[in-house]
Amino acid sequence: MSSLANSAVLSVDRLSVSFTDANGVLHALEDVSFAVQPRQFVSVLGPSGCGKSTLLRILGGLLSPTKGAVTFRGQPLIRPRREIGFVFQNANLMPWRSVFANIALPLELQGLPAEEIAARVDELIDLVGLHGFEDWLPRDLSGGMAQRVAIARALAHDPEVLLLDEPFGALDALTREQMEAELLRIWRLRRKTVIMVTHAIPEAVYLSDRVIVLSPRPGRICLDTPISLPRPRQQALQYTPEFGELALRLRAAIG
């Protein structure tokens, strides 16, 4: 186990988070521990308000833990890092920037020369299949297209880890299916470590190598299981008995 812990990209050790507001103390997460191996696709599954988004914000260095520690490659994670990319709920694009400029943002912040930015953004636009939409503004994009832009933006500075906060929650079922397939394709091509928060059980099973289930508030790990279905996976997999069994087990764990 210790060798596994050493090779981990991200590890979370006895993490607790609580918020204090006018109504008193709110325990969002309690005693959460796990370690994520390189190139693993991990889903964090749980009902609304189980603190899974809070967990993701901690992994992104956007929030600090009340108790416990988070380490990235053995170093304490106390602020956002370039090696960790974040995909927000609802795309979170800048409405005044075109598709191209939104994807270019992380590179611009790094201060790269314009030609290099253009070359890398063009490549990303190809990767997410948005060729021809470079100059469109976010208001003219569909939900699926906007989320493609968000994924491309998160990949722009080539982070090792990709954190996804319910990325497809706002999409209709068919678009969602399409985007899941897209995400798998991109994950295979770019070999990233992915941690995705979701409340959709089939999505978690279909995409992941491993699913961590959180209980309702305060969030505790109530199941941490590998998903050893063969890859590459097709949508049809969702209708096999093995898939159904796994989904049922996860459903039962949520309670």
């Binding site: 992104g60 709920q89 800048m94 005044w96 611009e108």
Partner: peptide
């Protein structure tokens, strides 16, 4: 928007970059 502020933080934008690229246009 708070979410865009979080985005800028996650991308390690400096104060000046946040002002110029987020706060002023927004």
């Amino acid at each position: 928007p708070e979410e865009l502020r979080a985005l800028m933080r996650s991308l390690q934008a400096t104060r000046w970059q946040t002002l110029r690229l987020l706060e002023i246009p927004a």
